[in-house]
Design a protein around this nucleic acid. Structure first.
Lengths: 219, 219
DNA sequence: CGCGCTCGGTGACTTGGTCACCGACATCCC
DNA sequence: GGGATGTCGGTGACCAAGTCACCGAGCGCG
């Protein structure tokens, strides 16, 4: 069980001593689905490297609406949170375990030490930053400039995978896009009228993926 | 002219050798207002520490609309760009010199070396990251959840300063908020009807700041 | 079974974004 | 001076999106 480091491609070239520090000073934790990993008034104290499961990071507005910012997958790290706890901890994003989770937790001090000692680790961290930040740029572009019907279609394709079945409520889909439940309901209704999807309680089935894809890309 | 390091509070505690490396290996550059510092297809090669002037970072959507993400002021650094050039350079944000600019440019390799050698420098960099990221979170919250009239009122107060005079066109104000010119025109018209502002070509004068502030905060 | 909850549907309305167009003004050049 | 051209702001009509209020269908639970 000391070989979890291999699951992170960015850490492949790590020197032996560094790798050993990492393994020695980090703790493997498991958390059940639904756990709030960090959130308003609950700053994380360590960098998380996700071994299994996914973490959803979302923003909650005062009016109660929510928007998903990005997801951290197995093999990735939760870097943004580390940065934030350094300076301002009063940001309103929260991290949720979307499934059961297994992760390696690296304490701040060890993190700092590794950054100092290893160029590979530095590259790993800054690359992770870059990915998250471009994710955020993308979210901004989407909410500021793009139409919801297109965004919904894209999201459905993204979530539907091979099976084309999505087990989410309209409310949850609305959170994915940062819009309101009614808007999603109406759009899905329209998609159904066109024969692209079929809805049931807490579920959406994609019935014409090519047409959806056409719509999402072209229009 | 080797004492520009003092202008950065976060670099105050820097050890002599580190400080000297920084001064020795960085270059002072001056750029005229309007220079595109980085942008799509134009990745920056060094970390910029702003000595004088301000840099505006904005996102450009395919449809031509724009939104201001944040500003880098004198005494701050342009860290996000460094991270991004590491991984994906195809993000659609661009950095513009909003005034004439003087900045110290730290090459990648020197940056990496300093990060390795100095805990103070590490803290400086990660703190700068944190600030930018919370800025982005704020932008997302605003554009996804808040009403434009409130956002416009806030922006006017922010830009108006003590004098209450703002030398921007309606189009530029729209870019500040990531909305359309017509929307700004209509809102300003309404504000004017209420006696809060007075408009002229390329200029807005705030005529009732307390009322504007009331509106921006309460409603 | 009845109770309370979540989920989704709907109509009416407000707000925001788009489109097309226009006149006022500024600049520049003959 | 008199165009030619471009920017700036105003406007009406329309469409897209968000809000509000309400409802009924399904579901789980005691």
């Amino acid at each position: 069980m000391s070989d979890w480091v291999n699951r992170f491609p960015g850490l492949a070239g790590l020197d032996e001593p560094i790798r050993n520090s990492l393994i020695e000073y980090s703790q493997i934790a498991t958390l059940p689905e639904g756990t709030v990993i960090f959130g308003p008034g609950k700053a994380p104290e360590s960098l998380l490297l996700l071994l299994e499961g996914t973490v959803r990071v979302q923003q909650v507005g005062e009016n109660g609406r929510e928007i998903v910012l990005y997801r951290v997958q197995a093999g990735e790290s939760c870097v943004l949170t580390t940065a934030c706890l350094l300076a301002y901890e009063d940001y309103s994003a929260e991290g949720l375990a979307e499934t059961d989770i297994k992760a390696a937790a690296i304490p701040r001090s060890v993190f700092d030490d590794l950054i100092a000692r290893s160029a590979v680790f530095r590259r790993f961290v800054f690359t992770a930053y870059a990915r998250r930040i471009t994710d955020l740029f993308e979210v901004i572009e989407e909410v500021a400039f793009k139409r919801v019907d297109l965004r919904l279609a894209q999201k459905l394709l993204e979530l539907g995978g091979a099976s084309g079945r999505i087990h989410l409520t309209h409310h949850q889909l609305a959170t994915e896009l940062g819009t309101a439940r009614e808007v999603v309901s109406r759009q899905l209704h329209e998609f159904q009228r066109r024969g692209w999807v079929h809805g049931a309680r807490g579920e959406v089935a994609l019935t014409d993926i090519p047409a959806l894809r056409d719509f999402a890309e072209v229009a």
